[in-house]
Amino acid sequence: MTISSPLEAPAATGVNPALKFGLLGLGLLGLIAAPWLGAYPVFLMKFLCFALFACAFNLLLGYTGLLSFGHAAFFGGAAYFTGHAAKEWGLTPELAILVGAAGAAALGLIIGFLAIRRQGIYFAMITLALSQMFYFICLRSPFTKGEDGLQGVPRGKLFGVIDLAPSLNMYYFVLAVFVLGLLIIWRFVNSPFGMILRAIRENEPRAVSLGYDVARYKLIAFVMSAALTGLAGGVKALVFQFATLTDVTWQMSGEVILMTLLGGIGTLIGPILGAGVVVTLQNYFATSQFPVTILTGAVFMICVLLFRRGIVGEFYASRLGARLGFDLRR
């Protein structure tokens, strides 16, 4: 058997900054203009929530090399926390979302503390098992209202002033949270701390021998990823005004893996693209009889077999990508 190679994650470096920021600016402009160009705001908001979710997940898989199979616990858990805070405590939306993110971070601390004791596939199985345990707790505890879920979560008034009930107001709020989340991730990944995480991903024994407390770094990355996932989950609860068991299931954990894998593990924009593709496909098949899991599963298999680097990763590795200055480092 060959020695396991690290996950194939590229790093874009040396790209012409004008090109990079130009593209990012264009993307942002596109998102600002999208509702005026005929895109359905609720669809856009769903996309942004999942895109942030996937980016937060990628922080862990792409930059630390840890495959969590339990991120639904943070996503769906935060949706419950935010929903509860907004509905039962009457908090304003920004505070309710913070409650969701904080709750997800606390959950991440517990699950992460246990899971980092093992590596690789064991890590994946442990996170899956613990998130399933959280699912059963959600199923039983009165605070989640069981099978019915939390219904009628109010969107409320942002800072007590701006009413978020109109879809357009809500959309720009979601977009702001999304951009804020991405900025945090970008700052985190490009900090010295992020470099240490990449070192752990590339060669854990060497990072240990250099004197880094690997377990602590992994745990911080895990909690960070959980908190940002919570941010996405909390926003989703406000957008759809409910929180249900669907978001806590293992299928949801699988979905976010698919988005990240399809877009490109370890790239900043890959997960956003992946989320866009998956959410669009789901919307398309939502009305048909064809079960979307067959499609999701098939995409998983094809992606792993044929283009492991994902859409963005393969583009970086292609001749055109190389000419533009994207560098694929293993």
């Binding site: 495959l67 596939i121 994946a124 699988g254 893996i257 894998l261 899991t293 067959i294 999701t296 599963g297 098939a298 995409v299 998983f300 298999m301 992606c303 792993v304 077999l305």
Partner: peptide, 10 residues
């Protein structure tokens, strides 16, 4: 793991 997960879904 990811491949067999996809297989399970299918």
């Amino acid at each position: 793991l990811l491949f067999t997960f996809g297989l399970a879904l299918v």
